[in-house]
């Protein structure tokens, strides 16, 4: 079970969280202006890296907040986490 560094509450066990996918995929401001390809890329294409991954978690059984974290997908070790709207440290 991962120990996940919630930037609001501190490290907590994985059971308190839900995973929320890759970070930094913002919803386009004007979806109507996008081509089908661009829209599909937003909806479906993911980096899925073998290594450092910027991702989102929600501390659902805690503060309830979504936040960002950087984790190595080879070791599952977290590097750091940061609040939405902030820059990674």
């Amino acid at each position: 079970m991962l120990l996940i560094p919630c930037p609001y509450c501190g490290p907590r066990p994985e059971l308190e969280f839900t995973y929320a996918g890759e970070a930094n995929i913002s919803r386009p401001a004007e979806p109507e202006s996008l081509s089908d390809e661009q829209w599909a890329a937003y909806l479906y294409q993911r980096t899925n890296p073998r290594g450092m991954h910027a991702e989102r978690w929600r501390h659902v059984h805690g503060c309830g907040r979504y936040f960002n974290a950087s984790r190595d997908t080879l070791s599952d070790q977290f590097q750091f986490s940061w609040k939405p709207g902030e820059s990674p440290p």
Binding site: G21, E22, A40, A41, Y44, Q45, R46, N48, P49
Partner: peptide, 17 residues
């Protein structure tokens, strides 16, 4: 590892591992 290999050809995939 498909995303990693396809990335070598410059393609982003609709996949998560």
């Amino acid at each position: 590892n498909t995303s990693v290999i396809m990335g070598m050809a410059g393609l982003r995939m609709p996949l998560e591992s």
